[in-house]
Design a binder for these strands. Structure first.
Lengths: 246, 246
DNA sequence: CGCTTCGTTGACGTCTATCAATTCATGTGG
DNA sequence: CCACATGAATTGATAGACGTCAACGAAGCG
């Protein structure tokens, strides 16, 4: 099994978390052609304004979407773990207004829009599955807006850790209280909208209060329930249990 | 022409801003059945956890999506002007994890999922258009994350006004520098993640610096370019000029 | 005319940013 | 194995943005 096939299997598994697909439809996903690539830490995969003709499936490592301000400050708007397409939406919106960057050395698979497009148009149910995937990511984004707008730094960091824990668990990449999150404190800061210094202080609180351990890249949580409590974390938005429609 | 038909026409126009649809496909949208309803100011249209079987098209008024914290604080995650479906995504994700509320007396049209579902499955190109619509809203959400995470209160308010101005203009509901935004300062505060008191002070700055006038419900902007400058506003994310694919 | 909602103002407290060291971990070459 | 370079984590002191509390003014309405 090639690495491309392995990644497509992960991607399919992720789709199946939300959507029901026939075996024919599943096969179409698994047979998508892709071009593997290795991306170095901190290298951009997509830049703002760029028009792409392929989507990017994460095979290993961590990939992030960013909004960048003129003063150089960055705000992460999405984090993508292996098995996720970090810009499936580019199929219907090929001009990016953000950048996508590798936060670690990463391997990815580029899947030409042409084939995704074809798959969607021939199989409405697949188009709907792609749509649903986009909406799942959008729900996460909505939750981030709530966090950034109305929670303090501690709760934001705690929320991010809860979210990434559940997402890793759902993807079969660890458990909610023990998983990889290969981010530096600076990258964490960009994700929760505070300074690196303040993230550091925040992590100290979480270590003391919720038994958090964070030795890059490994996150451990002794008292997950308490962490979720601090974060006011309600997993509903991830829609991980609900069987999809269709 | 009934009010339902008028609203569907607005909705179609909005879809056509991003997607190309055949006249047959356009007819399907225009022929969608819908049930008109009037919603009073501050009344919830959808509550968190609710499973809906219809989408809600805004015909008049302003409608918002909210994330609510346990201490009662609210964070708006989306604003919807007439012609927009405020939860088209509910077709593929019927269980809401947020609430949708009318910010003014509003009239809406409920469109049963059944018909949207049917339209999407029979017309992959429509499914793609719905998907693209979702991604357009998601791009806005991403921008909000950037604003909340990395800009000060003045820039956030300015950005929101620029955004709503362009959206109204694109929808044919005014110009970017003169349009209706029937929100109280408290509702504005919920949208930009600050306190009402601070929004008030922020508006005073914008009145002085950018010639903003805001006599509910009317917004006027004397120096739009300067306002956009203050907001670091780049309209790209709205994708208003690009002809869609397909 | 009193009631209610919204907008405005002032004083004060807290959270987070900023600036600048310092420590720690890791890896490389001698 | 040690000296040194590099990136990350940590700490302290200070400043600024925004929140909180409380009061007051303005406008619409029965």
């Amino acid at each position: 099994m090639s690495s491309t096939q392995r990644s497509l299997q992960l991607f399919l598994d992720m789709l199946l978390l939300h959507s029901k697909l026939s075996s024919a439809e599943q096969k179409i996903v698994l047979d998508l052609p892709g071009k593997p690539a290795r991306i170095r830490n901190r290298v951009d995969i997509v830049s703002p304004g760029e028009v792409v003709d392929h989507a990017c499936l994460v095979a290993s490592g961590l990939v992030a979407r960013f909004d960048q301000m003129r003063n150089g400050h960055r705000q992460t708007t999405a984090l993508h773990i292996p098995g996720e397409m970090c810009d499936l939406h580019s199929v219907v919106q090929p001009k990016a207004s953000w950048s996508i960057t590798a936060l670690t050395d990463a391997s990815v698979v580029f899947v030409p829009h042409k084939f995704l497009w074809d798959a969607a148009l021939r199989n409405p149910n697949l188009a709907v599955a792609f749509w649903r995937d986009g909406m799942a990511q959008s729900a996460i984004l909505g939750k981030w807006v709530g966090n950034l707008g109305r929670k303090n730094a501690t709760a934001r960091v705690a929320h991010l850790i809860c979210e990434m824990g559940l997402r890793n668990e759902a993807a079969g990449l660890g458990t909610r209280s023990n998983f990889d999150l290969p981010m530096t404190q600076e990258q964490l800061a960009d994700a929760v909208g505070v300074t690196p210094v303040h993230v550091n202080r925040t992590l100290q609180v979480l270590r003391k209060d919720a038994g958090l351990t964070f030795k890059r890249p490994r996150v451990g949580v002794e008292d997950w329930t308490h962490l979720a409590e601090l974060a006011e974390f309600d997993p509903d938005f991830l829609q991980l249990r609900t069987g999809g429609l269709t």
